[in-house]
């Protein structure tokens, strides 16, 4: 089973009305890989992540996670993945400590263990000073750190992360990156979207670029480096961003 890829997406399609948010996506993410899923705003990254999380049903296509078909084995998959979704899935009326305990118990941890891990995670993510504060009062960076802490509480095999470093300060981001690298070293897989290309370039083994719902490039970072281009150059070239400069001469 472990030889199967962490994620296998085949001809995935998601329509919103007449518009295809994701259009015939094929992607394979090997196990133990740090995978960067890139794209400009509105490219279909979040929609793809939502389909992987089981929050949005695909219009067509197939998803296999950790060798299990989605949505047929949805619960088994969910028990083995850690999610850093967008902020709307946090429970604002709970304190940070209560939220982590709640998540731990939802993943089947005993109450005492959930509490113990929650306290340790809050300390690890430098949120122990805010453990009694309501999540609704957290800053954006604190919310992201809390979401990442929650994703780790049940020691998952696969992390699905939507913009995990958004709004996080440099120290916090460094700590989060190191933690994720440790998770990959122990054999977990990380699948993340990010707009910060330097972060992706430094962390990821493989990257894929999606634009207007279609996969336009997939490669290992090693192959990219052989070409001598930075990820940013490649990204801008791939989505055709260079042309946009031409019109505004007055600028």
């Amino acid at each position: 089973m472990d030889s199967l890829p962490a994620i296998r997406i085949t001809q995935l399609r998601k329509l919103y009305g007449a518009k295809a948010a994701v259009d015939g996506l094929n992607l394979t993410v090997p196990r133990g890989c740090f995978f960067g899923f890139l794209g400009p705003n509105g490219a279909g990254k979040t929609t793809t992540i939502k389909m992987l999380m089981g929050l949005a049903p695909p219009t067509s296509g197939a998803i296999e996670i950790l060798g299990l078909p989605m949505p047929q084995a949805e619960n088994e998959i969910k028990a083995r993945i850690g999610l850093v979704p967008d902020e709307t899935l946090l429970f604002e009326q709970l304190t940070g400590l209560e939220f982590l305990q709640f998540v731990g118990r939802m993943y089947g941890l005993a109450r005492s263990i959930a509490r113990e891990r929650a306290v340790e995670l809050l300390h690890l993510f430098e949120l122990d000073g805010a453990s009694g504060q309501l999540v609704g009062e957290y800053s954006k960076g604190m919310r992201k750190r809390l979401a990442m802490a929650a994703s780790m509480i049940h020691r998952p095999e696969l992390f699905l992360m939507d913009e995990p470093f958004e709004g996080v300060d440099a120290v916090g981001a460094r700590m989060m990156k190191n933690l994720l690298l440790e998770q990959v070293r122990r054999g977990a897989t990380v699948f993340l979207t990010s707009h910060v290309l330097e972060v992706v370039e430094r962390l990821c083994d493989r990257v894929a670029i999606i634009h207007q719902g279609k996969l336009i490039m997939e490669s290992s970072m090693a192959d990219l480096r052989l070409g001598g281009e930075t990820l940013e150059d490649l990204f801008v070239r791939a989505i055709g961003g260079e042309r946009r400069r031409e019109a505004l001469e007055w600028l």
Binding site: A79, Q93, L94, E98, F102, L134
Partner: peptide
């Protein structure tokens, strides 16, 4: 996974939300 564990967690969190 037993439902009662999750159900208890949800009710606990709901109670905490109100109390908070």
């Amino acid at each position: 996974m037993a439902l009662n564990l999750q159900a208890r967690a949800i009710l606990w969190a709901q109670w905490r939300s109100w109390r908070n």
